[in-house]
Measured scan of single mutants.
Amino acid sequence: CHSECLGNCSQPDDPTKCVACRNFYLDGRCVETCPPPYYHFQDWRCVNFSFCQDLHHKCKNSRRQGCHQYVIHNNKCIPECPSGYTMNSSNLLCTPCLGPCPKVCHLLEGEKTIDSVTSAQELRGCTVINGSLIINIRGGNNLAAELEANLGLIEEISGYLKIRRSYALVSLSFFRKLRLIRGETLEIGNYSFYALDNQNLRQLWDWSKHNLTITQGKLFFHYNPKLCLSEIHKMEEVSGTKGRQERNDIALKTNGDQASCENELLKFSYIRTSFDKILLRWEPYWPPDFRDLLGFMLFYKEAPYQNVTEFDGQDACGSNSWTVVDIDPPLRSNDPKSQNHPGWLMRGLKPWTQYAIFVKTLVTFSDERRTYGAKSDIIYVQTDATNPSVPLDPISVSNSSSQIILKWKPPSDPNGNITHYLVFWERQAEDSELFELDYCLKGLKLPSRTWSPPFESEDSQKHNQSEYEDSAGECCSCPKTDSQILKELEESSFRKTFEDYLHNVVFVPRKT
């Protein structure tokens, strides 16, 4: 048989008469490798580009789960590009990614509803959504962080984005990388972005840091009482949809009607710091009717980097990364020049730590249904340095008659930039024990000054392991946590139920 035959053949030295091919099969003959313009397919066939392209389009058009959109890589027609490569849609070739590779997620039936953290986790790592997304989240724990972890990498949506009755959302900033909504599939009414009845939605994105392009379709905003109209108009300008909307697409009466839409800028007039305090004062603000001013709200939190936005980490279910302080308005003076500047002394802060701070007014709604208010920009203030805590785990070892090696770990709280350490030492008198000992005694162990690591005695271990207080009263049991108490109650309830079950099964009433 021919060298490319495997198993047997019907005619000697003829690659077209093989029972099976050793390498690849091409047009009725066995070959060692697939010549151009053919590609290896499933490690035994040679196919042309049209064959591989037909497989790709067949799966793409069917949208069946589990099928493969075949691509070409290293002269092979394979189910998908290997790690580190992405497909070129024009020629199906796998090309190296520039940075992290995109991950295209194809949605069944063309859309997916995100109504819980669990459903959001199914899209973790996706960068391109081939379909439409509907966000409908009523509640949950730590929602802002969970949504950002699972949806934060999405850069492109081919269909539309719909935010509907998501009472738990305060902001859409968890879509931190969303840059493009194509609108290839539109919501009824030709809408590519749809926001309806979101009672706590206050911000779409921080438009000073976020760009969003909507290729096709219109915007729809109705019944978002805490979303200011200025935020919607800003989205029109940034996304390129200005002029597409009709009169009733953006409701003037049901958007922002319960919001404090600040239209003035508060400026800080005085800032002073110490290692654990920050004193702030800002310019006074009074609405047209000074009785509408209820006070100020001061927001602050630790910020290692200057990239904080107002609604980071917030949701309507209680999660809030900001510390909020309510401040009463100052006494009002008739003389504008003698107006008191409101302020606040922030206490209990960490030394040498940068804080993000902003302040906003708290006002009631005027009778004319106009909203007044003022808010400052987010500023960054760093507390002063102070003395560091003591170095940890000092170790001293003498390696000769004239040297001592000293080692330690950095302090747990540096409280500033540590530039150097101060080492103090003092000579001590020799131990009298060394002169009084009889060095001729056998088995004498000389006193040693070398360091030995501390260890816990058996008594201390027994005390720590004991669940009861000892007789001397030195140790006591740790208080039980809520989960331990709940577990004990469940076990007790189970024992009672099981005992009742045994009584009912074992003891049967005697027939009379």
Score class of each variant (00 low, 15 high):
377 D>R: 11
376 S>T: 08
335 D>I: 11
331 L>I: 09
304 P>I: 11
115 D>I: 08
131 G>M: 03
242 K>P: 10
118 T>K: 12
246 E>A: 08
191 Y>R: 07
342 P>K: 04
347 R>K: 11
345 L>D: 02
349 L>N: 01
193 F>S: 01
190 N>L: 10
103 K>I: 07
224 N>W: 11
326 D>H: 02
336 P>T: 07
380 Y>V: 12
196 L>V: 12
393 D>V: 15
252 L>C: 09
294 L>M: 03
303 A>R: 07
234 K>L: 09
133 L>P: 01
191 Y>T: 12
103 K>F: 03
252 L>R: 08
393 D>H: 10
327 I>L: 01
246 E>L: 10
391 P>S: 01
261 C>L: 03
239 S>T: 13
320 N>D: 00
205 W>T: 03
275 F>Y: 04
173 S>D: 08
126 C>P: 00
284 P>T: 03
220 F>A: 13
251 A>V: 08
306 Q>N: 15
287 P>T: 06
156 E>L: 06
237 E>N: 10
295 G>P: 02
328 D>M: 15
211 N>H: 10
116 S>R: 00
200 N>K: 14
356 A>V: 06
240 G>Y: 12
201 L>A: 01
351 P>N: 02
331 L>S: 14
239 S>P: 03
133 L>W: 03
215 T>L: 03
259 A>L: 12
391 P>Y: 04
212 L>K: 02
372 Y>R: 05
355 Y>K: 04
318 G>K: 14
232 I>M: 05
214 I>R: 08
318 G>S: 15
121 Q>N: 03
134 I>R: 03
225 P>L: 01
213 T>W: 07
334 N>H: 11
382 Q>C: 12
241 T>M: 13
315 D>I: 11
362 L>G: 01
387 N>M: 15
214 I>Y: 04
230 S>L: 06
351 P>R: 11
243 G>W: 06
183 G>F: 06
330 P>T: 08
111 E>R: 15
119 S>R: 08
381 V>P: 11
226 K>W: 02
307 N>P: 08
342 P>Q: 07
325 V>T: 11
247 R>K: 12
291 R>I: 02
206 D>M: 07
232 I>A: 13
341 H>V: 10
323 T>Y: 03
192 S>Y: 04
331 L>G: 14
350 K>D: 09
202 R>P: 11
402 S>D: 09
335 D>N: 07
327 I>N: 02
246 E>M: 13
254 T>K: 04
171 S>F: 14
266 L>R: 01
109 E>I: 10
400 S>F: 06
231 E>T: 15
239 S>G: 07
237 E>G: 07
178 L>Q: 02
144 A>N: 05
140 G>H: 14
136 N>I: 00
301 K>V: 04
260 S>D: 04
261 C>W: 04
122 E>L: 14
141 N>K: 09
359 V>T: 05
248 N>P: 12
256 G>V: 03
186 L>H: 15
349 L>A: 07
342 P>F: 08
392 L>T: 03
318 G>L: 13
146 E>V: 03
379 I>W: 07
208 S>M: 09
263 N>P: 08
130 N>L: 05
270 Y>T: 07
122 E>C: 11
160 Y>E: 05
292 D>V: 02
319 S>M: 14
159 G>H: 04
222 H>S: 08
407 K>A: 01
382 Q>L: 07
229 L>A: 13
201 L>R: 02
363 V>A: 02
341 H>F: 13
121 Q>C: 02
147 L>T: 03
307 N>Y: 02
313 G>A: 04
253 K>S: 13
312 D>K: 05
403 Q>F: 09
261 C>A: 13
288 P>F: 11
224 N>V: 03
159 G>N: 03
273 T>H: 14
173 S>Q: 09
227 L>P: 00
403 Q>V: 05
400 S>V: 10
200 N>G: 06
338 S>Q: 12
170 V>W: 08
265 L>Y: 03
371 T>N: 10
163 I>Y: 04
177 K>P: 02
278 I>H: 00
286 W>L: 06
108 L>S: 09
287 P>I: 02
203 Q>A: 05
313 G>P: 04
221 F>R: 01
196 L>I: 14
128 V>Q: 02
146 E>D: 01
259 A>R: 05
257 D>M: 06
379 I>G: 07
384 D>Q: 06
320 N>F: 10
217 G>T: 01
274 S>M: 11
301 K>Y: 03
259 A>Y: 03
199 Q>E: 03
190 N>E: 03
152 G>C: 10
147 L>Q: 04
150 N>S: 06
163 I>A: 03
234 K>I: 13
351 P>S: 06
246 E>K: 06
253 K>D: 05
253 K>A: 13
335 D>R: 12
133 L>F: 02
263 N>S: 11
301 K>A: 04
145 A>W: 05
294 L>T: 05
199 Q>W: 04
213 T>E: 11
165 R>S: 04
281 R>C: 15
364 T>N: 06
161 L>G: 03
384 D>A: 12
293 L>G: 01
289 D>P: 01
353 T>I: 15
340 N>K: 14
204 L>K: 04
167 Y>I: 04
393 D>M: 15
280 L>G: 01
173 S>P: 04
383 T>N: 00
294 L>C: 07
341 H>E: 12
155 E>P: 06
254 T>E: 04
360 K>L: 00
227 L>G: 00
